[in-house]
C-alpha cells in the first residue's frame, strides 16, 4: 500500500493506493495518522478510490483509525469506496460504522454540515 496525505484547509485527505492487506500497511497508516493528530488535525478523510483491493486487516486499519480519531475528539469519513470495498463493508456490517461519500469533495463538505 502507498499512502499520500493532502491538506484541504482544516481537513486532511489520506489517500490509500494499491493492495491494503495489513502487516506493514497498518504501521504506515497509524504513524501518519498520529502525525496529523499531533499537528492538531481533527477532520480526516480516507480516499479509497485508488485501492486495488482490501482485506479484513485493511478494514481493521480503518476501524483503528476511526477509533483513534474519535478518541482525539475528531471525525473520520471514507470517500470513493470502490464496489469491492463497499461489498466488504456490507458483508461485515461495517456500513453501520463508517460514513461513506462518493467523492472526496463531498466528504470534505460533510464536515461543515
Amino acid at each position: 500500500m502507498k499512502l499520500k496525505s493532502e491538506r484541504h484547509g482544516s481537513v486532511v485527505v489520506m489517500g490509500m493506493k494499491g493492495k491494503v492487506m495489513g502487516g506493514p500497511d497498518a504501521t504506515v497508516f497509524r504513524d501518519e495518522l498520529k502525525n496529523h493528530l499531533d499537528d492538531g488535525i481533527r477532520k480526516v478523510v480516507i480516499d479509497l478510490g485508488r485501492v486495488d483491493w482490501m482485506n479484513s486487516s485493511g478494514l481493521g486499519i480503518l476501524i483503528g483509525g476511526l477509533t483513534t480519531v474519535k478518541n482525539a475528539g475528531g471525525e473520520m469519513k471514507l470517500a470513493r469506496t470502490t464496489d469491492k470495498i463497499q461489498s466488504l463493508l456490507m458483508i461485515t456490517k461495517l456500513v453501520q460504522v463508517f460514513s461513506t461519500y462518493e467523492t472526496v469533495e463531498a466528504a470534505i463538505a460533510a464536515f461543515s454540515e
Binding site: S56, G60, I61, T92, K93, L94
Partner: peptide, 12 residues
C-alpha cells in the same frame, strides 16, 4: 464486536 479491529477474515 463491530469496532473490533480483527476477526472478520473467515466471514469474508
Amino acid at each position: 464486536n463491530l469496532l473490533s479491529e480483527s476477526g472478520r477474515g473467515l466471514l469474508i
